[in-house]
Amino acid sequence: MKAVNVVKRFTCDELVELITAYLDDALDQPEREGVQVHLAACAGCGRHFEQFRATIDALGDPLPEKLPTDVRDRLMSAFRERHRP
């Protein structure tokens, strides 16, 4: 028996648990195709998937953070001290 062309079938509850593995490309081929087939056919999971991706995008856009100037100055001096000839 060849494993090629086998597509795994998932319920909606199973599918939503696989999204991270799917996005990380950690599924085998029948699973990956099963996810794709389900997402193409199921509007609810399709939207859920898009929201999941939108969440990941939003997480990657945080407010910028900076080290306070006094801490940065202290670290620059420490670096300089260490390498003083």
């Binding site: 945080p62 910028p64 953070e65 900076k66 080290l67 940065r72 670290l75 620059m76 670096f79 300089r80 260490r82 390498h83």
Partner: peptide, 21 residues
């Protein structure tokens, strides 16, 4: 290792924000 201050400053400014989080 050679004491390149500009390189250290670049690392500080590139990574410290994420490190704080």
């Amino acid at each position: 290792r050679a004491g390149d201050e500009a390189m250290f400053a670049t690392l500080l400014d590139t990574w410290s924000g994420g490190m704080l989080r």
